[in-house]
């Protein structure tokens, strides 16, 4: 009748987290999605680095964005922490790379995975949610002055090589 207590549950939890991430890695390797990459940083799989390509015919066309993903012991029942590592000028991303996206917060579901998160972020680039902006200026410019918006996107952007050079 012993109820599993905290530590035991956590241990079991992180074992299944690793299993699940292993499976996701397999899926990503077997069926790569164009425009998206993701790979764990180390063996314990809890931190990943991902990239998404800016969608065509958006201000982010042909730009590549690097992201970090962190998976807690309650994944997939809680969302991963996702940050833009590449500086990005976007209405729903702040200057530290934090993202405002419902599925990364309260609308997260256990059937989402790394692939769906990255695809959602990719579509967020082309369709920002301007009603709840983290970057108010960007939200305003998106609606009013697309040329200035594009200029600021390019001014803020750094390629992965530049990022690596800066030690980020």
């Amino acid at each position: 009748m012993a109820l599993s207590t905290g530590p035991r549950t956590n241990a079991a939890g992180s074992a299944t987290v690793a299993q699940r991430l292993q499976k996701e890695l397999m899926d990503i390797m077997m069926k790569p999605t164009p425009g998206i990459t993701a790979f764990p940083d180390d063996e314990n799989m809890s931190r990943w680095t991902a990239t998404i390509d800016g969608p065509a015919s958006t201000p982010y066309d042909s730009l590549v964005f690097k992201l970090s993903m962190e998976f807690g012991s309650t994944y997939p029942y809680a969302p991963p922490k996702v940050l833009f590592k590449t500086p990005i000028y976007h209405p729903n991303v702040d200057f530290s790379g934090r993202i405002c996206l419902d599925i990364l917060k309260d609308k997260w579901s256990a059937v989402y995975n790394i692939g769906t998160v990255l695809l959602s972020l990719q579509s967020l680039l082309g369709e920002p949610n301007n009603s709840s902006p983290l970057n108010g200026q960007a939200a305003e410019l998106w609606d009013k002055d697309m040329d200035e918006f594009k200029r600021l996107v390019l001014a803020r952007h750094k390629t992965p090589e530049e990022l690596d050079g800066a030690g980020l």
Partner: peptide, 14 residues
């Protein structure tokens, strides 16, 4: 007992 144990296992119950 098994049922209670399973539902108190975070991973199984979730």
């Amino acid at each position: 007992g098994l049922l209670l144990e399973a539902f108190n296992d975070y991973s199984i119950s979730m």
